Lab assay of single mutants.
Amino acid sequence: EVYKVKIKIERVLPNGEKVEEEITIEVEGMSEEELLALARELAAEPGVRIKEIEIEKLPP
């Protein structure tokens, strides 16, 4: 199964400015739980906050 994972994050820059970013990846052969863990890892940097995680199962 192939999933499209869209992660919206908010990053706080050293000057205090907040910037929103969106990361989209396609992943194959992982469960939804593994995808959530991967998304959290991607956003685990200091000053980064996850705003939204969207997981979509793509048709075969």
Rank of each mutant, 00 (worst) to 15 (best):
V19P: 01
V2W: 11
I50V: 07
E41V: 14
I50Y: 01
E21T: 08
V2E: 09
I25G: 01
L38G: 02
L38S: 03
V19T: 08
A43D: 06
G29P: 06
I53C: 02
K8Y: 12
E22L: 09
E32M: 12
A39K: 04
K18A: 11
V48I: 11
L36W: 08
E17C: 11
L38Q: 03
E20Y: 15
E17H: 14
K8D: 01
E41L: 15
L58E: 05
Y3F: 08
V27I: 14
V19M: 10
L58G: 11
I55E: 01
E10Y: 05
G47Q: 03
V5D: 00
K6E: 02
L42M: 14
E41Q: 14
I50W: 02
A44Q: 06
P46H: 15
G29Y: 06
N15M: 03
L58W: 14
R49K: 11
E41F: 14
V19K: 09
I53Q: 01
K51E: 03
N15Q: 02
I7V: 08
G47I: 02
K18E: 04
V48W: 05
K51R: 13
V19C: 08
L38C: 04
K18G: 05
E22N: 07
R49M: 07
E41N: 14
E21H: 10
E28G: 10
G29Q: 03
L13M: 09
A39W: 06
G16Y: 02
K4E: 05
E41C: 09
R49P: 01
R40E: 06
I50L: 07
E17W: 05
I55Y: 07
V19Q: 10
Y3I: 14
V5W: 02
E22K: 04
R40P: 01
M30S: 05
V19L: 06
L36M: 10
E56V: 12
I25Y: 03
I9H: 00
V27Y: 08
E22T: 12
E34F: 14
E1L: 10
E41P: 01
E32H: 13
R40T: 12
I9G: 00
I25F: 11
I7M: 06
P59W: 14
E56K: 12
G47P: 01
E17D: 11
E32D: 11
G29L: 03
K18F: 08
V12S: 15
V5E: 00
V48Y: 09
L13I: 03
E21S: 12
P60A: 08
V19S: 05
L42R: 07
P59N: 13
I7R: 00
I53D: 00
E56W: 03
I7P: 00
I53Y: 02
I23R: 03
S31Q: 10
T24F: 13
G16S: 02
I9W: 08
E32P: 14
E34V: 14
I53A: 01
V27W: 09
V19W: 08
R40W: 12
I50C: 01
P46E: 05
I53L: 04
A39I: 09
V27R: 05
L13Y: 12
E33C: 07
P60N: 06
S31M: 08
L42G: 02
K57L: 13
L42A: 06
V5H: 00
S31G: 14
L35K: 01
G47L: 02
E1P: 15
K57N: 05
L58H: 13
E45T: 15
A43F: 09
I50N: 00
E52Q: 12
K8V: 10
G16L: 03
E45Q: 14
E34G: 12
L35I: 13
A43S: 13
P60W: 00
V48T: 09
A39V: 15
E22P: 01
I53G: 00
E56Q: 15
P14V: 05
E33H: 13
K6M: 06
V12I: 08
E34A: 13
L58D: 03
K57F: 15
L36V: 12
E28Q: 07
V27D: 02
E41K: 12
S31N: 06
V5S: 00
E32C: 04
I9D: 00
I50R: 00
R49T: 06
E33F: 12
S31I: 08
K4P: 03
E28M: 11
P14F: 03
E1Y: 09
V12H: 07
V19A: 05
E54H: 14
N15K: 01
K4F: 07
K8W: 14
I23W: 10
E52V: 12
G47V: 02
L42Q: 04
E34H: 07
I53P: 00
L38V: 07
E56F: 03
M30I: 10
A43E: 07
E22Y: 11
E26C: 04
G29D: 07
A44M: 11
P14A: 12
V27N: 03
P59T: 15
K57A: 08
A37S: 07
A39Y: 12
P14R: 04
P14L: 11
Y3A: 15
L35A: 10
L35Q: 02
L58I: 15
E54S: 14
A39P: 01
L58Q: 06
V48H: 02
E17F: 06
K4T: 06
E10G: 02
P59D: 04
V48L: 13
E20H: 12
K51T: 13
L13Q: 04
K4W: 07
P60G: 11
E56H: 15
L38E: 01
A39R: 03
P59A: 12
E10N: 02
V27G: 07
E20N: 08
K8G: 01
V19Y: 08
K57V: 10
A44Y: 13
P59M: 14
E56A: 14
E34S: 08
L13E: 02
E17R: 11
V5K: 00
T24A: 08
A44H: 09
T24P: 01
L36I: 10
Y3M: 10
L58K: 11
N15F: 02
E28H: 05
I23N: 01
V12K: 09
E22G: 02
V12M: 06
E26R: 09
L36T: 06
V5G: 02
P60S: 13
E34N: 11
P60V: 13
V19G: 02
K57P: 06
R11E: 00
V27Q: 05
P59E: 10
L58Y: 12
E56M: 12
V12N: 10
K4Q: 07
V27A: 10
R40H: 09
P60M: 01
V12D: 07
A43G: 12
E20L: 10
I25Q: 02
L42C: 05
